[in-house]
Every structure is written in C-alpha cells, then in structure tokens.
Design a protein around this nucleic acid. Structure first.
Lengths: 341, 341
DNA sequence: CTGTTAGCGCCTTCAA
DNA sequence: TTGAAGGCGCTAACAG
C-alpha cells in the first residue's frame, strides 16, 4: 500500500505539508506541484481509516429505513445518495423490516461504526435511540416520521394539512359519508387521521365510528380488501373511502378486481400516496382506475434530507436547535371521485 | 470516548489481553470475567477505525447497482443485507444511474474507501475496474450480469436456457410467428436473444428480422409502446411477442391500454421478469392481463451473493478461482398465451 | 508557509 | 497465557 510517507519521499515535501495540501489548505505553489506529481505517479490515495482515526470522521452516513422493497424509500434514497455522494459522503444502508428492536440495534451499531450522521425513518414511538445519538453528538435526521417529544432535525410531508385539504375537496364535491381506512399505527397514520377528523368537523359532518377501519399488524392486501368490502356492506355505506396508505389502496384495488366494484359509480376512492407518480411504479400507472390522491415529493424529501444532514455535520452539534422541515404535497384528481351534485 | 485503555484501567488486565479477548482468542477465565464486567460497566465498544487501521479490514461491502428505483434490485439487496448484516458486515450503497463512467468511479472510490469486497451489477462490457479490484485483492461478485473475458465470482440467472425453454413452450402451443422486443444492449439482453434465436432454430423456424425490435437508449414506456404497435401493424404480424425486460412489458401494457389490444386474442405476450412475483410489486399483480413470464429468484440471488462474498473474504484472494453460480428461473403461464391449435 | 513531533485506538510481535 | 512496546497512516500543535 502506498502511504503519505511514500509521497513524502518522492516529492521531498514533508508529510505535514502533504496532509495540508490534501485537506485543501494553502501550500506554496511549487510544493503543490511536486506533491501532485508524486501523488499521480504513485497513485496515492488517502487512507480513510487512518485519517478517520485522527479526525473521528468517516464521511459516512447511516440510513435506517423500514423497507427497501416498497415504492416509497428507493426514490428518496436515490436523491439522497446523489446529493451526498457529490459531497464525498457514503451511505451505509440498513433495513429493519419494520422490526422495532432491530431498528434500535441498527442505530446503535451505526453509532459504534462511527458514522457521521444517521437518517432514520423510524417505526418507534420511543426515541431513546435517537436521544442517545444526539447526546453523543451524532446528528440524526428523521425522515417521514417524527417522534413525539423528541427534538430532532426532520424532513416530513404535511400529512395533516394534505389530508384535511383532500377530504375538504371531496366534501365540496358533495360527499358527506366519508370513510377512512387506517393502517398500522404510525406517526403518519395518526396525522392523516387528524386531518380527516378535523376536515369532517370543520364541515360539520359527523365522524362515524363504523366508517373507520384499522387494517393492522400486517401490510396484507387481503386484510385491506376485507375491510374495504366491510365498508361497502354497511347498511348505510360511505360514498367515498379514503385509503391512508398505499397498501390499503392495493387492497381496495384488489377488492374492486375480485368483486367487480365500479369506481366511482358504487363508491369513490382517494388515497394517500397517489401511485402513478412513483418513479419506480411506471407499471402502476397502468392500473385502472387510477385513484385520486396525494403525492409526496419523494425526490425533494431525499434531497432536503441530504442538505440538512450535511449542514448539520458542518455546523456541529453544539447549540443544537432542531430544524423541522415540512414539505408540501400535491393532490391529483382523477375520475375516481364522483361529483354528487 | 471510552477506549481499550479505560477497560485496562478498570479491569486491571492489559490491553493486549483485552484485545485478544475481543477477538475471540482464549484468555484465562477470571480475566475474561473481569474484562466483560469492565466492558459492560463502561459501555465500551471497539473502535472500528483503529482496528481497521491495523487489520486493513472494514467489515464493509460496497454494493454498486444501476438503479435502486426499479423492482429488481431492492429485493436482492434486502436478502443480501439481511445475510451479511447477520455476519456483522455493513453495506455501502451506490447507484450509478446507468452511467458507465459513474459506475467505474464508484468502484474505484469504494476501493479507496477500503471496503472488504464489492458487489457489482455492471452496465459495462469493459471490465478494467473489476480487474483492478481483483489485482488489489479486493473480492468482487458480479450480480446479474457477467463481463466477457473477465474471470470473477458471479451470481446470475440462466437467461439463455430460461428463454430457450419459454420460447420452446410457446412453439409447442402452436406459435410460429414469434417476435422479440429487445432492450438496451446488455449481457442479459444478449443472452436472452441467443435463447430466443436458438429456440427458433432448434424448432426449424425462421428468424425474421422484422420481428425483432430494439428499444434502446432509454427505458421509456412510450418507445416500447411504439415498437409493440409496429410489430402488430406488420403485414404479417407475429402471433406472439416476447418482451425481453420489464420496461418493455410496461410499454406493451400501455399499448394494450391505449389501443385496446386484446391479449391473447389479437396477440399473445410473454415476458422476461414476470411481474406479479416481485415482492414490491403487489400492485402489479393487479394489472390485467398478467403476462406469462419468467421469474427470477430475487431473494436467492441476494442470499447467494452474500454467501459467496463472505466465503471469498474468508478464503482470501490467493489461489483465486472464480466461482460462477447460475440460478434457475421458473416460468409462470397465464392466460396471455393463446393455444393455436 | 513549513517540518518536527506526538499521538488517535488498536493489534501483534516478543520475551517472559 | 500474559504484558510491554512498537507501529498501522494520518493529522494537528508547535516552533520556526
């Protein structure tokens, strides 16, 4: 292996000066030339292990997410990686497969691994692991989901307002009996529920218990399909169903397929996460009907998370004041919502 | 930061012995106890930077893939990560967005970063970067695509035989006019073409130039849609179209949707990469018709790649003999292929 | 702006 | 089996 010592010998410039040069500090011109020449000749590269040992920096960011095999995180990840790699950072990827204990273990391991920061899409309501990081001066950026009571940098979308607006729009189209299919308990699901509840309330509509389903414990299409059908089979079925996440949308689509439900003739549907806009879901745009729904700006989430992280690393963790960024969504209206007047 | 020196002080055992203990060597029983106690009390963790500096190992594997936002790599990645992380390895993820120059740069950067190995799904026909790694004794496992003339560990599926068999099956169903939609030039596309060509040849069917389209330069649905329609509009159109990859399948589906093509009444379709089996594509199983097609065992690819990599790291790179693993696919027949007799 | 020097935390001889 | 000592490659303080 070729080390800085070899460069020293070949260039005749001292290690210290070489190190300065490598780290972008000013060096006498002819020294810079000598160094560059030697580096090229030897094909020298800085040893990140050695420099990291001194500086306690690894130029590495840990990314901890629930699942990589969905439609949501890959685009975010791509944008994030693109940005940080341009700035000479690497990402260590960890999937915890929606296993809270594993999530915490992975975060702790990354700390031990000396990453310079952690991007976390948590499934936990208990932020002990996050607190630990912050105490150890390791920046964390929460992605997509906040943790109540934890002050930490974050990038999320405006789940509450998006839902409030979407539901309100449907109400203006004449819908009064609006159901919500909720998913596994999570920060995002909670926020969306609040938006739904408050939109009804604001428009003086009653929130009916039987109009709320909770498809929990799994992300199975079939559970969601069943819940969808249960809503339709109520004595007084809803005229519109709001699917709180894409797994529920899939269930609704499956129900439609199996039971030949006409949308929007028999029931209107809107969804959080409108599918056709997912870059890796070019296929999904081929599904009919396309649900009206809320689009999250995935690329932007990834990019902003990257910027926030690198800024935080640069600024350091003293005088920490959490920065919470909330991005806007857009609503796409398709033929899946009937006009009721 | 708590170091091995602190453990030494607290336990009264020397650093050397502690280090041995940490690395699984035998240590006198009561020393082991003292060490363990001190470690727990101090919450000590080995500093991977320092130990790496000595051992030149980082317990890190670089993963270089074309795109993370498709349906193919995420499941592979998940299986890979699951296996290697259980063995205390981390993965550094790199997307090169189908940019060959970037691919090479990423591989080189990972080498400089001192990863212990690299998993590479290449888009290149020129394996200089791979050769460099091997020369530097850094193991590489090629994923999904081989590079002609490069002897390197690999995990691929049997593109040639799978295609040969699938086409043969269709021929047995009475199809004689069989078209192939090819994609961007790649190892996999080449292999699939050979399988197609040889299946025709073996069954004494003529390979017709006008039955082969190449949708290249991009992965656009609309290009593929156009090519699909071009085939249908031939004077003597094919009775069956083989889509060589999923982007082409998407184009075919789009054509069907826009032009109201009846499948298989007007034309039969089969595809490489049958969609419904992609774990992140639960949605896609909702698309009708489902194309008959070839399923690659994605989880297995990831797992085997992980095993191969860790074995190689363990064995070291002396007496290197490349191990090439070829996994079997399965063919799923749906209603998208008509019986012609 | 430069070179000398002393570690960063760990592992690994070596002699005991 | 153990402890003392040196060094992995780099950076940062210091004196010039």
């Amino acid at each position: 292996m070729v080390t800085i010592f070899d460069v020293e010998k070949l260039s005749g410039v001292s290690k210290a000066t070489i190190s300065r040069f490598l780290n972008g500090k000013t060096v006498r011109n002819n020294n810079a030339e000598k160094i560059q020449k030697a580096i090229k000749e030897l094909n020298y590269n800085i040893n990140p292990l050695a420099s990291g040992l001194k500086s306690n920096k690894t130029n590495t960011i840990g990314v901890v997410i629930p699942v990589i095999t969905d439609q949501f995180f890959p685009p975010i990840l791509r944008a994030f990686e693109k940005f940080v790699s341009k700035n000479n950072y690497y990402i260590i990827l960890n999937n915890y497969n929606i296993d809270e204990a594993l999530e915490k273990e992975q975060v702790r391991n990354l700390v031990n691994k000396k990453v310079d920061g952690i991007i976390l899409a948590t499934s936990s309501y208990d932020g002990e692991h996050v607190k630990e990081c912050l105490k150890n001066k390791i920046p964390v950026v929460l992605l997509d989901r906040l943790i109540p009571g934890i002050k930490c940098d974050s990038v999320v979308t405006d789940n509450y307002q998006s839902t409030f607006d979407a539901i309100s729009l449907c109400i203006r189209k004449g819908h009064k009996k609006i159901a919500m299919m909720r998913g596994v308990r999570s920060y995002t699901d909670d926020e969306r529920f609040k938006g739904y509840r408050d939109a009804l309330d604001f428009n003086q509509l009653e929130l009916r218990k039987e109009y709320i389903t909770v498809t929990s414990g799994s992300y199975e299409q079939d559970d969601a399909k069943r819940d969808f059908m249960r809503l339709l089979n109520l004595k007084e079925p809803p005229t519109l169903i709001f699917c709180s996440n894409i797994y529920l949308s899939a269930g609704a689509l499956k129900a439609r397929l199996e039971y030949n439900i006409n949308i929007p003739e028999e029931v209107s549907v809107i969804a959080f996460d409108q599918l056709s806009k997912f870059p890796n879901y070019s296929f999904v745009s081929l599904i009919r009907p396309e649900f009206s729904g809320i689009c999250q700006p995935l690329d932007e989430i990834g990019l902003i998370a990257g910027k926030l992280m690198l800024e935080r690393i640069k600024k350091g963790m003293d005088n920490y004041e959490a920065e919470n960024i909330e991005l806007k969504t857009i609503f796409i209206m398709t033929e899946s919502v009937a006009e009721l007047r």
